[in-house]
Design a binder for these strands. Sequence first.
DNA 1: TTGACATATTCCTATATAGGAATATATAGT
DNA 2: ACTATATATTCCTATATAGGAATATGTCAA
Lengths: 126, 126
Amino acid sequence: MARAATTSDGFNAVAEPRRREILEFLASGERSVADLVVRLGIRQPSVSKHLGVLRRVGLVRARRHGRHILYEANPEGIRPLHEWTNIFARLWAHQLLRVRERAEEKARQVERDKLRDCKNSSTEEA
Amino acid sequence: MARAATTSDGFNAVAEPRRREILEFLASGERSVADLVVRLGIRQPSVSKHLGVLRRVGLVRARRHGRHILYEANPEGIRPLHEWTNIFARLWAHQLLRVRERAEEKARQVERDKLRDCKNSSTEEA
DNA sequence: TTGACATATTCCTATATAGGAATATATAGT
DNA sequence: ACTATATATTCCTATATAGGAATATGTCAA
């Protein structure tokens, strides 16, 4: 048997590097096919084909605007991939630590601010 | 040109459903090839081939234990995929809202604490 | 060493690509 | 209607599969 179709699910669609590039670009907003051609530096038919795959899998949506067709990312389509990778989240010890550390650092910062505010209000009392 | 090799990166390796199943199973701990054969219900050579792909891409590690070879997931290999999906995190409205709401609620709580602390310090001046 | 078990590898084939080239379709402007 | 522009589709080909079948490799045990 050959590989599963690129249109069989998001995982297969996103396996192609160009399609990831497209999605990365579309993450910043709606773009025309021509925009993508310029951005990716590949020929227009290739871009259209990739967009076709992404559209069939529900990773992008398209709408006409004059002569152009504007594509936008459908972030909901990416979520299943995100959820899947989360299966391993509990094994990322450092990341957990880092997130917690950042939260605690922020809390400390807030404490410092609080102290400073109190002092200021007691001296200059605007 | 054909599709990128399954061993070219984690995205391509994980595009195959069987390989995802393997990783899901290995997320619960080290397993032998025979375990995987039972679990997946596919023939041993297929499992070995899938494991070979996963190993080359760095998604699993193997070690011998007697006659058996034990495979374990390498969660670090999955992180790049997770990071990539995070590009769209800010577009997941509910999650974004939830995160922002929690941050703002926390900020309000901090404000309340600050006010209370200031009042306390002006009355009981410890 | 021989045999039994566990895993990997090789050979085979049908299948689905990705990109190039050429062409079709659709829309706007004149 | 005609032309220019924007995008999609078709045809082509080299390539890499996934799984089946058969076989090789490696390890223990007696």
